[in-house]
Design a protein around this nucleic acid. Structure first.
Length: 988
RNA sequence: GCCCGGGUGGCGGAACUGGUAGACGCACAGGACUUAAAAUCCUGCGGUCAGUAAUGACUGUACGGGUUCGAUUCCCGUCCCGGGUACCA
């Protein structure tokens, strides 16, 4: 045994812990660097080798930056509220905190083994009251905010109240629901008339009771309580945010989700839609994530236009991105849920409309989406008046119009929109032509290229020209205005669950009030069961004696809890000042550490965490608590590490009656992969002849006959990868495992081996292909694991875990070790001046490693180090100076190994504080270059020439070369291209 | 359908601004050492063809075109794989 990784790693992990090597503090004299891993949820399953991939990558950058003299903040903590612990609590009655702590301890144990440079003194847990006190405080801040569209930012509610007091809401330009006044319970505001349209005066405001004022303010708040359509998941017993729903099912657990109107807390993220969009241009994130966020925000420019309903005192308001096509409108389509539908439907069509609405209501969101190709609709009998032509336009309802987008109504232009075209075709509605020189008989003209016709003042205009013109015409008529619409909805913020942050909110006369800051945290109370009450109240309603005391009165608390993304929306700030009891983080510290310089994590949070934390950051910025409005300056998404599963092929006998499924009977015979594959290649169950033939080829005639019985097939089954080495099955171990039996018979290949099949797929217990970091650390050491995870390929990419390849990097470390040790494993280095050859090898590595780390190319660094060590081994070098520098280069990847050698090389302080070796070009300078010479692009021979030669001299040297004549084939060279220190190309 | 990625040996991948394609590692094959195994070391390793051989020729980065002295890299078209997203007016 030469390189004793177990002892070395344990030793240095202990030293680091004792000396607090990774503790950091603000130091204004030093540049800062903030490297952050995405907050893990401590799941019960622990880590497999895929999880630490990103942690290792960011750890390497953190260590590298420290070598370069940066003051590096590199923390870790836990997003410890969440559903799995609560589901487990429901089943077992065990408090979710206990489960959570057990899981956290297991995580910590696993993380410690890998040797991360985390400052554990800064650990945070979202479920600890010291932490969620500030989550509650930030909620309070958002609750106490409104969004002023004039200043483009959040302001305190007090500034709004000031405005109300001086001028009512006449000059208030706030982000607020367009139709907010329709939601107001007018019975509580007797002084507002029946057709109250949202405007009130300072006198109105001052005459209101506190209750009335609070009800009104609620519509302006950035965190507000409202009856809204929510995604209700009956199986989980809670509402879910849009990003937690995928294909009409809950992201966690895959339970069905239905639409339900409920009184819920929401966050007015829509107020920030434009800033969230603009901010994307200022941050260095993977383009696909930015694109997902752009789509999610879904900005579209157009106009909102009102169409008067014929014979009613009502307008249908539509949003359109193509107001220039307004002369092509031949019908209107409303969502079945549209509020005007019952009002305007004529008696003649009432039956049909009601039937249609009922059938639409029965369908879930999922049904409606999956049934998109099936066009349905119903005429209401009503008409609107075209504002420009005065024509009567029929009003239809159709499922293809979504209630939740825009106004829930569209002006249908079949000539220019495929969905409208399909609808018109199906129901025999007219398709007026409005695009010159186009054919709309087979499909709509959906491009923006055509010029308009039959469009009055827009005739002959392009899309670009027509847009401003028609918007001004619409505005002139007073029937609408240019408008920007966003697809994004406000985010539902309450959950009917136990294991989450309680709201710092109590109710007085059913009006919510914020608890006093001094009363924070509102601690999560004990309950007897983690289930809803009999009345359907959330679990917190079970808490005994849980109330808020204010001026000797007792008030009931809010029973909902906050969603998972609450705590994770600001945790990167808490790491800067994790123990502060006065404020969520001291402004000076926040200013010092500032934005996260490298954020490492998965792409799956694109529309959740990554959007919400940007939103909260902007709110905190608007109020002046922090000095930046984007949290993560650069982000890299690590890819998934896939498992490599192995399968055995068990031979089956069976019979198949006509039109009956085949009955298989498993035998005790297992066929090696080579044989089994021939069966699969047949594409059908082998006939007895085919079977005999295949087996005979492999085993010889007589043996084949013995095996076959009846109709046969091969059953492919997973086998635990621990029983397989390099696809070869360990037969003895297999027989005594759960996968095999003692009397199993193996049909082997030519080399007397049983070869298993393999599959590259996600790691999971059911596929018996899980690799845990613990096993690998045990077998090869953490340093090897770290190197190997990086060596696998680019971090961003998904790639299979090759169980065998880890030997290669382990050998590299052993080889490195041998550079500094003699045959008897005694430390032996030469303390002399390095030779030019040694220096060239070293500086080649310094250059490449530095460049690669700067461009986050983790995998190529490992290759570079391997090449360097190979070359030094060849040079039989064991130079102390060379090795010292090399150890520093390696230390971000293999910190324990580096510490050990660093110490042996005579250094007394930790290698983590060693200065990064400086690259010196002079060691790479050579005076000649071996030019590849090509003829018409084909490389033919090499010629070594001095680099100081001029291009003409190089050309002459090449033309004079003995081989040149051969490739010229007697022709004259047309041109000779010389790229100095690269290539010579002769054109013939 | 739309939007992003991506197709390079048996495998993971390298080639950074167009300049010797296949670095580095795995696997495999042959050899040395050894009683044997492991470990270690050496050699070979995209394909086809020619040659006893060193070697040489052709071909080759999904496919078909183009630009260029020169294309894995740039442009156009096609196919395939992965991810995201979808009646968003």
């Amino acid at each position: 045994m030469e390189y004793q990784f177990r002892e070395i790693e344990q030793k240095w992990q202990r030293v680091w812990r004792e000396k607090k090597t990774y503790q950091v503090n603000e130091d204004p004299a030093k540049k800062k660097y903030y490297a952050l891993d995405m907050f893990p949820y401590p799941s019960g399953a622990g880590l497999h080798v895929g999880h630490p991939l990103g942690y290792i990558a960011s750890d390497i950058i953190a260590r590298y930056k420290r070598h370069q003299g940066y003051n590096v903040l590199h923390p870790m903590g836990y997003d410890s509220f969440g559903l799995p612990a609560e589901q487990y609590a429901i089943q077992t009655g065990q408090h979710p905190e206990i489960t959570t702590n057990t899981n956290i301890n297991r995580y910590r144990e696993q993380l410690d083994k890998i040797g991360f440079a985390y400052d554990w003194d800064r650990e945070v847990r979202t479920s600890s009251p010291e932490y969620y006190r500030w989550t509650q405080w930030i909620f309070g801040l958002i609750y106490d905010s409104w969004f002023n569209l004039d200043t483009g930012k959040a302001e305190k509610i007090s500034s709004l109240v000031e405005k109300f007091e001086t001028n009512g809401n006449y000059n208030v330009n706030a982000a607020i629901d367009d139709q907010w006044f329709t939601e107001l319970d007018l019975s509580k505001f007797p002084f507002f008339s029946k057709d109250f349209s949202g405007a009130f005066s300072a006198t109105d405001w001052k005459s209101m009771t506190e209750e009335q004022q609070q009800l009104l303010l609620m519509h302006y708040r950035l965190a507000y309580l409202a009856d809204s359509w929510v995604n209700w998941c009956p199986a989980l017993g809670t509402v879910l945010a849009n990003d937690e729903v995928k294909d009409g099912r809950s992201e966690r657990g895959g339970h069905p989700v239905e639409q339900k109107k409920m009184r819920q807390w929401s966050m007015r993220i829509t107020a920030y839609a434009q800033r969230l969009l603009d901010g994307l241009d200022t941050i260095d994130w993977p383009e696909n994530i930015k694109e997902v966020q752009r789509n999610w925000i879904g900005r579209s420019e157009g106009a909102s236009v009102r169409f008067r309903v014929d014979g009613h005192d009502a307008d249908i308001e539509v949003f359109t991105t193509r107001p220039d096509t307004i002369f092509g409108v031949s019908f209107m389509t409303l969502a079945p849920e549209h509020e005007l539908v019952p009002l305007i439907t004529t008696d003649e069509y009432r039956d049909g409309v009601e039937k249609y609405m009922a059938s639409a209501r029965l369908k879930t969101e999922r049904d409606r989406q999956s049934d998109a190709k099936n066009i349905t609709g119903q005429f209401t009998g009503a008409h609107v008046i075209h504002p420009f032509t005065g024509e009567k336009i029929p009003v239809w309802i159709g499922e293809y119009v979504l209630a939740g987008y825009g106004t829930g109504a569209v002006m249908a232009v079949p000539a220019g929109d495929q969905r409208d075209w399909d609808f018109a075709r199906k129901f025999g509605l007219s398709i007026p032509q409005i695009f010159a020189d186009t054919d709309i008989s087979e499909k709509a003209e959906s491009s923006k290229d055509a010029r308009l016709c039959n469009s009055q003042m827009l005739d002959g205009l392009s899309y670009q020209e027509a847009m401003p013109k028609i918007i001004s015409e619409i505005e002139k008529l007073g029937i609408g205005t240019g408008k920007i619409n966003y697809r994004m909805r406000d985010a539902v913020f309450s959950r009917q669950r136990y294991w989450g942050e309680p709201f710092p909110v109590y109710y007085k006369n059913e009006i919510p009030y914020l608890c006093d800051d001094d009363d924070l945290p509102v601690v999560l109370p004990e309950v007897d069961k983690y289930l809803p009450t009999e009345d359907g109240e959330p679990p917190l309603a079970r808490a005994k004696d849980w109330f808020y005391e204010f001026e000797t009165q007792h008030y009931r608390m809010e029973y909902n809890t906050m969603p998972g993304w609450a705590g994770s929306s600001w945790y990167f700030l808490r790491y800067m000042d994790p123990h502060n009891e006065k404020v969520f983080a001291d402004r000076n510290k926040v200013d010092y550490w500032n934005q996260v310089d490298l954020y490492m994590g998965g792409a799956e949070h694109a529309t959740g965490h990554l959007l919400y934390s940007r939103f909260w950051t902007k709110v905190l910025f608007d109020h002046g608590y922090i000095g930046f409005d984007e949290p993560f300056k650069k982000m890299i998404n690590q890819g998934m590490i896939l498992g490599r599963s192995n399968t055995t092929y068990r031979y089956c006998n069976g019979f198949a009656a006509k039109d009956q499924p085949i009955n298989w009977e498993q035998t005790n015979i297992l066929l090696t992969k080579e044989i089994s594959e021939r069966f699969f290649q047949l594409g059908h169950a082998p006939t007895p002849e085919e079977f005999d033939q295949i087996l005979a080829q492999q085993l010889g005639e007589s043996k084949a006959k013995d095996i076959r019985k009846g109709i046969m097939g091969v059953d492919k089954r997973y086998v635990d990868i621990s029983l397989v080495d390099n696809d070869e099955l360990d037969i003895k171990a297999f027989k005594s495992s759960l996968f095999g039996n003692e009397d199993d018979i193996f049909i082997l290949n030519e080399n007397n081996k049983y070869i298993c099949g393999y599959e590259v797929e996600k790691m999971s217990k059911s596929k018996f292909n899980v690799q845990t970091p613990d096993e690998l650390v045990e077998k090869f050491g953490a340093d090897t694991l770290r190197l190997y995870e990086m060596f696998l390929g680019p971090v961003e990419q998904s790639k299979p875990w090759d169980t065998k390849g880890i030997n290669g990097v382990h050998n590299f470390l052993r080889k490195f070790w041998r550079l500094a040790h003699d045959r008897d494993n005694h430390f032996a280095v030469q303390d002399i001046e390095p030779t030019p050859a040694e220096l060239r090898v070293l500086h080649t590595a310094i250059k490449k490693v530095t460049e690669d780390l700067n461009r986050y190319s983790w995998n190529t660094v490992v290759s570079t180090m391997m090449i360097c060590v190979n070359e030094l081994t060849e040079l039989k070098s064991s130079n102390k100076k060379i090795l010292s520098d090399l150890v520093v280069l390696l230390s971000p990847y293999a910190p324990h190994f580096a510490e050990e050698l660093w110490e042996k090389l005579g250094h007394t302080s930790s290698v983590v504080d060693a200065l990064w070796p400086a690259f010196d070009e002079k060691h790479l300078v050579v005076d000649s270059f071996d030019y590849p010479v090509s003829f018409n692009g084909k490389t033919r021979f090499n010629i070594e020439l001095g680099i100081s030669l001029s291009q003409d001299e190089v050309t002459q040297a090449v033309l004079n070369h003995e081989l040149t004549a051969k490739y010229l084939e007697g022709k004259q060279p047309k041109k000779v291209i010389v790229v100095p220190k690269r290539i010579v190309n002769v054109v013939v």
